[in-house]
Simulated scan of single mutants.
Amino acid sequence: MVRLLIVDDHIAVAESLHALLSREPGFELTPIAPDAETALRIVRETEPDVVLMDQGLPGMSGTDAVARVLAIRPATAVIMFSGSMTEDDLVTAVESGIRGYVPKGARAADVVSAVRRAAAGEILLAPDELTRLLRRSRERSRQRLERDRQVASLTPREREVLRLMAKAQDVPAISDALGITAHTARGYIQNILEKLQAHSRLEAVIRANELGLVEQ
């Protein structure tokens, strides 16, 4: 018997799918979860074998909920079941431990097959797709490490200068605000450009905003 939980805030879709799958031999359906918090409670109470997880949930997203579900019950197979997922969403879901992805437009027979295969321990992603997503995951990890390195490389004084640059302050204004000479201010600005790999002050400010170093 495969115990299945459907997590979807589109109640009409969820109820239709629930009714369909409840008629499948060997399937036992839990109550529907319209959001991630309800899903986590049902996972604790019923220990489902498979979870069909929508991405666009209110509050916590589906991809964020995956890790929480697996922390409660590692043996549960989570399948993303969504109408639209970006590649980054899929990468995050793969990093969190999903078994695969089934679009909401899939045929009922394909959904049933996916649930049975996931319950049996299969990974539902094609080998080339999994390889591509894992490559993207490694790329994102490198980007995060590079961002962390750039943030750590800036001194407290350089961060002060950067925040003033983000307020469109010129060299004289930065000098006055920090009580330093114009020559020293220019030196800080040059260091910032080099550390953030920026070719202009505007590019440095944009980069700093991406890194969360300045207020938007």
Rank of each mutant, 00 (worst) to 15 (best):
I123Y: 06
L125F: 15
R147Y: 06
S141L: 14
R207D: 02
I11D: 13
P156C: 02
I206Y: 11
A152H: 10
Q169K: 15
Q55P: 00
L133S: 06
V112Y: 01
R23A: 14
T184D: 06
A119W: 04
H10G: 02
P74T: 02
T63Y: 10
R135Y: 00
V43Q: 06
R135Q: 13
L164F: 05
A75T: 14
I206V: 14
E158R: 01
V78G: 03
A208D: 08
R201F: 06
Q216K: 14
A120E: 13
P48D: 12
T63R: 09
A120Y: 04
Y188S: 06
I42G: 02
S16V: 12
M85T: 13
R186F: 05
A93Q: 06
A75P: 00
L211H: 03
R140S: 07
L20V: 14
L196Y: 04
V214F: 08
L211R: 04
I180M: 11
L202H: 13
A67N: 02
S141I: 11
V91Q: 11
V78Y: 05
E24P: 11
V66R: 07
S200V: 10
L134T: 10
E95I: 00
M53I: 11
G56R: 15
L154H: 01
F27V: 12
V112C: 03
T181R: 05
I32K: 08
L4D: 07
A71K: 13
G121C: 07
L90G: 04
E160I: 00
E160G: 01
R149H: 11
E87L: 05
S200M: 09
S175W: 02
A36G: 14
T30N: 05
V214A: 09
E210R: 14
R23W: 01
A19T: 10
M85C: 14
V50S: 04
R163H: 03
E146S: 12
L134R: 15
A65Y: 07
V94W: 10
V171I: 15
A126D: 12
D148Y: 03
P74D: 03
I192H: 09
Q143T: 14
I72E: 08
S16P: 01
I11G: 00
A33I: 11
T38K: 12
V205P: 01
F27N: 07
A67L: 10
A106V: 08
Y188N: 11
L164Y: 08
H18T: 08
A67C: 02
V205T: 11
D88E: 15
R132W: 00
G121W: 10
E210W: 02
L178M: 09
V171C: 05
D128P: 04
P156A: 02
E87P: 00
L145M: 15
T86F: 02
K195N: 06
V91S: 10
A177D: 10
M53N: 07
Q55L: 15
A152Q: 13
E215A: 13
R140E: 12
D128I: 11
I192S: 08
R186K: 14
A114F: 07
G83L: 05
S84V: 11
M80G: 05
V214N: 09
